[in-house]
Amino acid sequence: MLQYTLRRLASAVILMLFVSFVAFALVFTAGDPAASIAGEGGTAADAERIRSVYGFDRPLVLQYASWLGRVLQGDLGQSIYFNQPVTSILIERFQATMLLGVLALCFALLLAIPLGIAAGRWPNSIVDRVALLFAVVGQAMPTFWFALLLIILFSVTFPILPTSGGETWRHMILPTIVLGYFAAPAIMRLTRSGMIAALETDFIRTARAMGIPSSKILSSYALRNALLPVVSLAAAQFGFMLAGSVVVESVFAIHGAGRLVWESILRSDLPTIQALVLCFSMFYVVLTLVADIINAWLDPRIRDA
């Protein structure tokens, strides 16, 4: 297990380096960064001055090396719009996004996994039908619309929850439900199909022939096998919830990283965009790593592979 973890860790580091280069190079693919910083009214001389101040005139590899060196020290550069270190802006914004993402993931898992187990245990039953309906609705409904519906219901018709903002835990309830419900159907369907497949295996027949109680067969013998693909999916969903929470953050006016992405693109705040791209890709790398390690812990065959 330790050996597997170290091996996965090493490949994750290599992947991170590669991703960081792509994130770095992204700035140069969008056009001349100096020109876009100088803005529409900037002259050629302005651009030239910016080029030497920011070091855009040096060879790309050198720029990357010095940028990477600063990133490793926690310096992601200076935001052009806020005129503040990007690092401190990101820390502030990611707190809200992380909190929302973690809450939404927990909500999605708590909703989807028990429902998936029940649907897989009794396929084509009423439970299964209800779960399917829930999944179809969840996947078909746009998040912004669902968010607005909830606001109308719980903040306007029955004013029990705040409409927007992210200051207290009560502010987080509706965004959590919206974002979590969006991620739940896929997890639920995968749990269901995993359970159906697991319950038909020879080793479940063995467990039944040995008189293992059916509750234990369901919750342990079958579930552990059914969850393997669910772990990978949940990790990807979590990454998506972090990066894709723009809509939810906008509707509920939460100052999170998702919203910052959108704002920064509008403002052509290159250092901030670059830092956000880097952070989100790092999250994906870390999440995949964590998912792989959880799977290796669940399934010994992966460890030895």
């Binding site: 467990a207 293992i212 096998n225």
Partner: peptide, 18 residues
């Protein structure tokens, strides 16, 4: 499994892999 037990044809798949 207690008073009547059973073994099967497929040893490769009859044990839980995890």
């Amino acid at each position: 499994g207690n008073r009547i037990s059973m073994i099967f044809q497929e040893p490769m798949t009859s044990l839980n892999p995890v």
